[in-house]
Design a protein around this nucleic acid. Sequence first.
DNA 1: ACCGCCGCTTTGTGATCACATCAGGACATG
DNA 2: CATGTCCTGATGTGATCACAAAGCGGCGGT
Lengths: 214, 214
Amino acid sequence: MQSRPSDSVSAVHDRLYRTLRSQVMHGELDPGAALTLRGIAKRFGVSMTPVREALRRLVAEGALSMSASGRVTTPELSNERIEELAAIRALLEPELASRALPRAHFALIERLQTINTANAEAVAKQDAVAYIRTNLEFHRTLYLRAQAPAMLAIAETVWLQLGPTMRALYTRLRRNEPPPHHRMILAALKAGDEPGLRLAVRADVTQGLRHLAG
Amino acid sequence: MQSRPSDSVSAVHDRLYRTLRSQVMHGELDPGAALTLRGIAKRFGVSMTPVREALRRLVAEGALSMSASGRVTTPELSNERIEELAAIRALLEPELASRALPRAHFALIERLQTINTANAEAVAKQDAVAYIRTNLEFHRTLYLRAQAPAMLAIAETVWLQLGPTMRALYTRLRRNEPPPHHRMILAALKAGDEPGLRLAVRADVTQGLRHLAG
DNA sequence: ACCGCCGCTTTGTGATCACATCAGGACATG
DNA sequence: CATGTCCTGATGTGATCACAAAGCGGCGGT
């Protein structure tokens, strides 16, 4: 039984953590969905112990919420909370983009365009999960160039908290156009236009979430 | 034995979490200090299970770092990381202060002054832990008025990551004056001077950490 | 005297179990 | 028919155990 106590990539609880984190961040779970220790343990064929650690970690990051009795569910955010998280994105992400700008060479811009194409395809297919995934990948790819791992980690935590909400949002309003501001971001990157980049990123980040409050 | 599975305040792992988090954030542990599961379990008279959950949670927040083999220690931050965390503080905290400003009435300012007095006493006594504690309490008390729990949570996470480093910093350079910018913050609050407040907070936040890079 | 190897101890990981609590439904009662 | 109560299954919590890996120190060889 005892498979492999520290296989680098292994470490059951870590594999669980990454899998669940990805599912939450990319909107594969609806808001309010319940996750049980034994359910997940059975699903992955492991015992409750590593499941508990993975869930605890996700709760600590705000990816999941825990009731007073310890029940774990995916969070249902209030409008105030959504607006606050959007405000945090609007604060952090222009800064990340600005720091990435000096290091954004052609190869990067080309990769961003590729990702953006995949994003447009997801929109055409009405595939909310693929849409969220490519959208976040677009941002992460850019921000990785900022050489600011702690700041990027915080941004990802915010994305994580918004995951289920974004799913609910994007499946509700079936969009048929890709996000308009991505083109503006790419243009500003090519032009080396720092203020324009900040504005485009801020607009892109604020845009989608604004629909909720309205 | 089985004491009380969900006593509200109880929940062993949660009590452990809060205790350890407080110790880390307030600089009661030196950077690089090792924490073992069995050691903590014995110290608190509990089993390894809740200890593991508490540590995992703290690692997830960046309060502690974990080696590849799972050993948990308090983090030793590189200079780049310290500067980045300072940059995040410089980004978030002026925003929090600005949001708190409209709601900062006299009672709040008076409480801040009281805290600041305690802070000055800690400086006089050369008590690094008390200094860090009162300093953070000063900021938290102000930011609580911002009505932005997610943003405050992120700021606290940053403080947490800086805890051991601040201890090392403040015990090394034995300061004999209280932080000068707290007075400027209080003055800006009284005057309702929003730009001045942002500047004062940014300066206060940047000041201490700048000594490290220099 | 220094270096490498081997064995012991420490430490983290995951499984399993006993227990308290909670949620939901059936049933009885007004 | 509505409402309160009780019971049962499900669920989280913490303890304990077996195991593998890592750290550490001593011993022997050169």
